[in-house]
């Protein structure tokens, strides 16, 4: 019972990794400590703030509360995997920039991942849907207003684009 290492295969931001890890490692530790993807943040460590949100198989999850072993064979996207490698931001990132939707930026990666997943899941969310879906992402700087506006702007953009 020594917590001996186990092997997992996981795809992170498009790259496949085979990693040998201790079972107690969380997905958050895997990203930050093993892969050096420090964009995903640790702020509460008790599943309450959402700063560590990443996308696993199209679903937003809190990386602090998922064991790395549990993403074996799955696809993980962290904030580093949003923009294209040659520097093109996603429409949501552009909207965040345009609406000044962040301040200190510490909770921003988690918010981006939650809202990216939400916009994938819901084609035409109302503002109430958005607020409800963002309950899991705590922010102390912004007061949420500009950030919710940024998400709604993308929703509108998408609607207009599909017409």
């Amino acid at each position: 019972m020594n917590g001996s290492k186990k092997t997992i295969n996981v795809k992170v931001n498009g790259e496949s990794y085979e990693l040998s890890i201790k079972p107690k490692m969380t997905l958050l530790q895997l990203l930050r400590n093993e892969l050096g993807l420090t964009g995903t943040k640790q702020a509460c460590m008790d599943n309450s703030c959402g700063a560590c949100t990443v996308i696993v198989n199209k679903m937003a999850v809190k990386a602090c509360s998922v064991l790395a072993m549990q993403v074996n064979g799955k696809e993980v996207t962290s904030v580093e995997g949003l923009a294209s490698r040659d520097g093109k931001l996603t429409p949501l990132q552009e909207a965040f920039l345009e609406h000044s939707a962040f301040q200190c930026g510490f909770c921003t990666p988690g918010k981006l991942m939650s809202s990216t997943a939400m916009l994938e899941e819901m084609s035409d969310p109302t503002e109430e849907d958005v607020r409800r879906d963002m309950e899991g992402n705590l922010c102390r700087c912004t007061g949420y207003v500009q950030y919710l506006a940024a998400i709604m702007a993308v929703v509108r953009q998408r609607k207009e684009g599909s017409k």
Binding site: N47, G50, T53, V56, M59, A60, V61, K62, S65, V66, S114, M118, R132, D133, E135, G136, N137
Partner: peptide, 12 residues
């Protein structure tokens, strides 16, 4: 279910 914790928690 909408009251259960957060979307992230409900997803997993």
């Amino acid at each position: 279910e909408k009251s259960v914790a957060s979307v992230q928690t409900r997803n997993w």
